[in-house]
Amino acid sequence: MIKLTNEQLERYSRHIILSQVGGTGQKKILSSKVLIIGTGGLGSPAAMYLAAAGVGHIGLVDYDTVDLSNLQRQIIHQTCDVGRAKIESGRETINALNPDVQVHTYDEQVTAANIRDIIHDLDYDFIIDGTDNFPAKFLINDACVLMRKPFSHAGIIRFQGQTITYVPGESPCYRCVFNEPPPKDAVPTCRQAGVLGVMGGVIGTIQATEALKYILGVGELLTGYLLTYDALTMTFRKIRVPHNRRCKICGEQPTITELVDYEQPTCDFKR
């Protein structure tokens, strides 16, 4: 069993004091592996809190470069990072925050062809969906269900956010609740959407919390419940969602047995 160094005892002291964590729990965190898909509004705070917590291995998946318009909410990136690959900028922030963390980067968009390999790469313990589009969200759900991996789904738009946690064999999946990606004309274009920058902070931090609780094996996860957050009215709702027996991927007679790429609704808004 690894011994915590004096520096680690001090860095993680506020964790170790907690009866649900202790030195034993902190060692679990230090040997855990979390994959974060998307280093944007949700992935940024999730990655930073998990790095601060000492998650031993953090995988970052993103193919994009940092844009000036990202900085209003994607706090892992700095002004000087504009134009750089998000995974590189993310790696630098995490390394500066906590040298205990090893960052693994995947410079690609998740697809039906590569997502299994990415999750298998380190055999990640928990996956965080920090993506901003429905094809990726359904792909992550389907991959996690087929590979029996727990994950946290989340989405944010305008002043609203939602999140749900999936644990194989224990909870309904994202598809149990939402079935299919919405029709293209129902999805707001990025011109229409907009998002208050802090939304990713609130919801992404809840995703990080779920990852830590899963690693530690403490508390009750957001399984079987969809949590919604409305920042304008400051209302959280925890909505019970049942397992869908007719779910196409985790129902009694699943029709999805292979991963598929849904078409991404096009966005003609020039950044």
Partner: peptide
Amino acid sequence: CPMTFVKTKVALED
């Protein structure tokens, strides 16, 4: 404090 408690707690865990 709180390292007095932290170090003791970890020593007892072992």
